[in-house]
């Protein structure tokens, strides 16, 4: 941890606030990355502003829209409500890292097949959320629409819709997004 009072040559008024920085090392899409950032920097801003990895998008910045979703140690999370310093050492996979142009992930392939987007802004978050969600379904996690939480959930359209409710699409491409995820789930 580095503590320093910021210097401001042009400022007439003294800068009283303390700036606290931390050096963080993460694996992003398979590559080890290190950055020294203010403790106030979120994982989302670390990716976009400090590591030049702009796949995760900033929508609401309050955990409500899902556009900043990535896989954090294999699990889907919103990165706007996580301080980067708390996740030192983590492994992050963005939508840019789940597949490639030559070999897209089945979820990415399915979004193309079904036109699961219009403007595309929410798409990286939708892709990461769908990949994480299908793993949760595969692991048998219950959801709000699972009839009996003690039993394994079925892979139904209703389950997909409920489990994707944390990802908004203001273009309203939901019908095609659900169809795409259904296709990917069948593989």
């Amino acid at each position: 941890m580095i503590y320093r009072a910021p210097t401001c040559a042009g400022c007439r008024i003294g800068v009283a606030a303390l700036v606290v920085e931390a050096t963080i090392t993460l694996t992003v899409d398979g590559e080890e990355r290190t950055a020294t950032v203010d403790t106030r920097v979120t994982l989302l801003d670390l990716l976009r502003e400090h590591l030049a990895q702009a796949s995760a998008k900033k929508g609401c910045d309050h955990g409500q829209c899902g556009s900043c979703t990535v896989l954090l140690n294999g699990r889907r999370v919103t990165t706007c409500l996580a301080f980067a310093v708390q996740h030192d050492g983590a492994e992050i996979t963005t939508a840019a890292g789940v597949g490639s142009a030559e070999a897209p992930h089945p979820v990415q392939r399915a979004f193309l097949d079904h036109d699961g987007f219009q403007c595309g802004y929410c798409t990286p978050g939708q892709i990461c959320s769908a990949v994480g969600m299908l793993a949760e379904l595969e692991a048998g996690w219950p959801s709000h629409v699972t009839t009996d939480v003690a039993s394994a959930p079925a892979r139904t359209r209703e389950e997909i819709r409920e489990r994707m409710s944390g990802n908004l699409c203001r273009c309203g491409a939901y019908v095609n997004i659900v169809a795409a995820i259904e296709q990917a789930a069948e593989r």
Partner: peptide, 16 residues
């Protein structure tokens, strides 16, 4: 308890 938990927030938030 399981039912109450899955009625709250979103999948991404419940993971955090």
């Amino acid at each position: 308890l399981s039912e109450a938990l899955v009625a709250g927030a979103s999948g991404q938030l419940r993971n955090l």
